[in-house]
Amino acid sequence: MSIFRFIRKIYQFFVDIPIKEGTVLNDRYEVLSVIGTGSYGIVYLCKDVKTKENRVVKQLRPSKRRNKKEVELFENETSVLRKLNHKNMPVLYEAFSNNGYFFYAMSFIEGDNLEDELFLSKKNFNEKESLLILAHLLELVDYLHKKGIYHQDLRTPNILLKNKRLFLIDFGLSKQRVSVDQFHSSHNKQEDILEMKQQDYYDLGELLLYLLYTTYSSKNKKALPWTEELSLEKETVHLLKKLLKIHGPYTDTSEISTDLHAALKAQEKVN
């Protein structure tokens, strides 16, 4: 660790102190507990004192609030959330600041984190179950892409499960396609959009592969490629190879949907 990184860590340790339980933010949100910390945010479970309902409030880490780039990232996340209107994604209520500290409030989605399901509950997903989870996720990704939003962080900690329903959270790294009149700037070329789309597709592939490995028990001391370790239907292998860019990558969610449908169809014949 470099000396500069060490100093930054020490600074963050003393500055990024979570807000105490019982504190009321913006005269409305009473802090109940800290439910998460990320590289640039602290997330609180709060009670809305007006509606008596639970809410989630995210705070930009105090150590980041004077960093223009970090503030812009936080504001971008707020902007993304404002555009969402999907029952399987958070609802933004308001963004606010207090004494130079930045916050936003959103809906509280109760569910089991997929990361905890895998590591703590040791839940397994067979090939069909894994493909069905991908199908749910693909629907959400398609919704985002049609709105010009690219999640860029499709990982197990950002997926919640409740009563067989799947929810997508944490848009902190999301990118947006800007308005048509700005489209010809260097940041908004067609290649850049395709790259952002394919990053989400690649993340879906990694996630699918991860789920498929939950039922795998190693019999070899030597690690082998997943194509040799996992016994999968050829349609699933084809889908994975394209998602992971081993073969010609996908350019649109409709292409993935077609191959995913074929993979699920193959599962019906097996079962």
Rank of each mutant, 00 (worst) to 15 (best):
162 K>T: 02
140 L>C: 08
130 S>D: 13
95 A>L: 08
119 F>S: 08
162 K>D: 00
173 L>D: 14
106 M>R: 12
148 G>F: 00
183 F>L: 12
183 F>N: 00
96 F>E: 06
120 L>S: 08
89 M>Q: 06
163 N>F: 11
167 F>G: 02
147 K>C: 10
219 K>R: 11
208 L>D: 05
159 I>G: 07
206 E>N: 12
168 L>S: 01
88 N>C: 00
108 F>R: 09
148 G>Q: 06
132 L>C: 07
116 D>M: 10
149 I>V: 07
208 L>A: 01
181 D>F: 14
204 L>R: 07
98 N>I: 15
143 Y>K: 06
107 S>E: 03
117 E>A: 12
162 K>G: 02
105 A>V: 11
145 H>F: 04
149 I>G: 05
98 N>K: 11
171 F>D: 03
211 L>Y: 04
188 N>I: 06
147 K>S: 04
150 Y>L: 03
94 E>W: 13
210 Y>K: 00
210 Y>A: 04
176 Q>T: 11
214 T>Y: 02
179 S>G: 01
131 L>R: 06
216 Y>L: 03
161 L>F: 14
143 Y>N: 08
172 G>T: 13
157 P>V: 01
86 H>E: 09
149 I>P: 10
127 E>W: 11
91 V>Q: 15
212 L>Q: 00
97 S>I: 08
128 K>Y: 14
152 Q>V: 01
210 Y>I: 02
204 L>T: 02
125 F>W: 14
182 Q>T: 10
184 H>G: 13
110 E>W: 12
147 K>I: 08
95 A>P: 03
90 P>R: 01
90 P>S: 13
144 L>C: 11
161 L>K: 15
130 S>R: 12
96 F>I: 01
183 F>I: 13
97 S>D: 04
86 H>T: 15
155 R>T: 06
215 T>K: 11
99 N>V: 15
86 H>G: 09
166 L>H: 09
207 L>H: 10
178 V>C: 04
123 K>W: 10
153 D>A: 09
192 D>G: 03
216 Y>F: 06
146 K>L: 07
214 T>A: 13
142 D>H: 05
172 G>Q: 04
133 I>E: 05
186 S>A: 15
146 K>H: 02
175 K>F: 06
158 N>Y: 12
108 F>G: 01
144 L>G: 06
179 S>K: 04
101 Y>W: 13
201 Y>L: 00
191 E>A: 10
217 S>A: 06
177 R>E: 03
87 K>Y: 06
128 K>D: 13
